[in-house]
Design a protein around this nucleic acid. Structure first.
Length: 510
DNA sequence: ACGGGAGTTGTTGTA
DNA sequence: GTACAACAACTCCCG
């Protein structure tokens, strides 16, 4: 009897999982499959921490599946070879999975799997995932269809009468010669932990979301912390959207019993808007699957002529640029595998504008640092923060301004850059301005115990920005930018202009 | 959803 | 009450 193979990729959960549900209803024997693909580990945007995280989430998933009467089979190897092997042993009737919108590599891999299925006469049933709409010609319909999908009911975890037992061992990365770096504060893997985290966010942590997300310290507490779970699919986007909506409704209905209901509603609405942005960016990758390899506007990219300077690259990566706030952010990221959105933008902006390094190399390094690496979001952001799309205004951050705004007391800098722990607040954002005598007194000598700034921040930023504007000026570059906007631009209606005339007219009406 | 300069409007303190 | 400087807050523009 042919078996249904449910191939788990970036959807490591049992609830709201359409392929799993469908397999359970078919009546066929079911194999749940997770493949550790060693080839991925050779890619420059994939890190052992990603595979380890997926493996740990899959291990948790295997326990949940066992309780449902199914069993997760772990395999190591190339996806097609693994399928071939399973087909020989069991005879695959159907392959079921979610559509994956990953990087160029996974796109090519899925094409190979598809042609293998076709050769074998095996049906591959792929189900839509998150808010991504496959085979969409233009962006016009996207928002409506995404929102509609988010409103559809969630499905429970199904039961299985005939799951084929997995007799093997869970593979270990170490046995393959990969040793993931140890992350501090790594979240607890798995679906239950993901749901718990969503609940704690909605029940109390998210109250200060709006105030907290811009700051690298507050965002640790008031951010949702759900991103790694979304990347590995421990949590469905639909569940997050629906539960956020019902929480907002609950606050609205019980507003008299709650203090500060409006701020709370604003926070959760803004969280929900960001969930939609998440889908919006992954949709870009869906429609342009080589976003991780080719700039959206290749002409601008060529005009920029950025070069990888090894010394700059190393100092940027390690958080040794001599720009305290940037270094602190880099070190937090390297240590925890996470940093908030705004600081990611600043880190990328420093690489692109101040240090003038090419986006592919810096973007790949960052991808490896983010535990929550999501190709569609990541490479869209990299494109934006390197000025290679041509459709967004150039956003070059000032590290010292951000530092003063987000960390006025310097507490965050002192935590992550201990060399600066004795520097008084007055100089914490610009320690090179300390008088030599003070430097000696506190044993923090700029240029010896902590590096001098790698470049003049103001000057390098100014030069980077003007070179970037110059690169997008030409006729050829402009015409490509226009096309990029048509294909990818957000279809949100432009704000109504509120000029003095309009106001005047309104006043006359009342 | 950038930063910095210029220009504008609003607020406060002082003679 | 008035005049005005000093300064904060805001808007617009440009790279």
């Amino acid at each position: 009897m042919p078996v249904d193979v449910v191939w788990f990729k970036k959807d490591l959960r049992t609830r709201d999982h359409a392929p799993l549900l469908s397999a359970s209803l078919s009546g066929n024997p079911v194999i749940c499959l997770f493949i550790l693909e060693p080839e991925r580990l050779e890619l420059d945007d994939i890190d052992p921490i990603h595979v380890q995280w997926e493996l740990d989430c899959a291990t948790d998933l295997s326990i949940a599946l066992k309780a449902l009467g199914a069993d997760l089979h772990f395999a190591v190897g190339d996806a097609v070879s693994v399928m071939e092997d399973f087909d020989k042993r069991y005879g695959i009737g159907r392959l079921l999975s979610h559509e994956e919108t990953g990087n160029s590599w996974s796109f090519q891999r899925d094409k190979r799997v598809l042609s293998w299925c076709r050769n074998k006469g095996i049906e591959w049933a792929e189900y839509p995932h998150n808010g991504v709409v496959r085979r969409l010609g233009t962006r016009d319909e996207w928002k409506r269809r995404r929102d509609k999908r988010m409103r559809e009911p969630l499905s429970d975890a199904p039961f299985f009468s005939e799951g084929i037992q997995f007799g093997g061992e869970i593979p270990q990365l170490e046995d393959l010669g990969f040793y993931p770096r140890k992350l501090t504060m790594r979240p607890v893997p798995g679906e239950d932990a993901a749901i718990e985290r969503l609940e704690s966010f909605l029940s109390h942590r998210g109250r200060e979301y709006r105030r907290g997300i811009s700051s690298p310290t507050l965002s640790v507490k008031h951010g949702s912390g759900l991103s790694p779970y979304f990347s590995s699919g421990c949590l469905s986007m639909r569940r997050a959207v629906q539960e956020t909506t019902s929480r907002i409704r609950w606050i609205r209905e019980n507003r008299s019993m709650i203090q500060g209901p409006d701020d709370w509603i604003k926070s959760l609405s803004s969280f929900r808007r960001r969930l939609a942005w998440r889908c919006h960016f992954i949709q870009k990758m869906e429609m342009e699957p080589n976003l991780d390899l080719v700039a959206q506007n290749p002409v601008i990219d060529r005009n920029l002529r950025r070069e990888l300077d090894d010394d700059r690259f190393e100092r940027w990566k390690d958080g040794n640029t001599g720009w305290p706030f940037l270094d602190a952010c880099m070190r937090q990221l390297n240590s925890t595998g996470w940093i908030n959105f705004r600081m990611r933008a600043m880190i990328m902006s420093a690489a692109s504008y101040n240090l003038w390094m090419p986006w592919r190399e810096t973007g790949a390094y960052l991808a490896k640092q983010f535990l929550d690496y999501e190709p569609g979001i990541h490479w869209s952001q990299v494109g934006m923060q390197s000025g290679t799309t041509g459709i967004n205004t150039i956003r070059a951050y000032s590290m010292t301004k951000q530092g003063k705004d987000q960390d006025p007391s310097g507490e965050y800098i002192r935590k992550w850059v201990p060399e600066l722990s004795m520097v008084p607040t007055k100089f914490i954002h610009e320690p090179w301005k300390m008088p030599i005598q003070l430097q000696n007194e506190i044993s923090c000598v700029i240029g010896r115990t902590y590096p001098s700034p790698i470049l003049d921040e103001l000057e390098s930023r100014k030069e980077g920005v003007s070179r970037s504007y110059a690169a997008r000026g030409g006729e050829e570059a402009r015409s490509i930018s226009k096309k990029v906007l048509q294909l990818h631009g957000s279809r949100r209606r432009p704000k109504k202009r509120r000029g003095k005339n309009v106001k005047g007219v309104q006043q006359k009406l009342f």
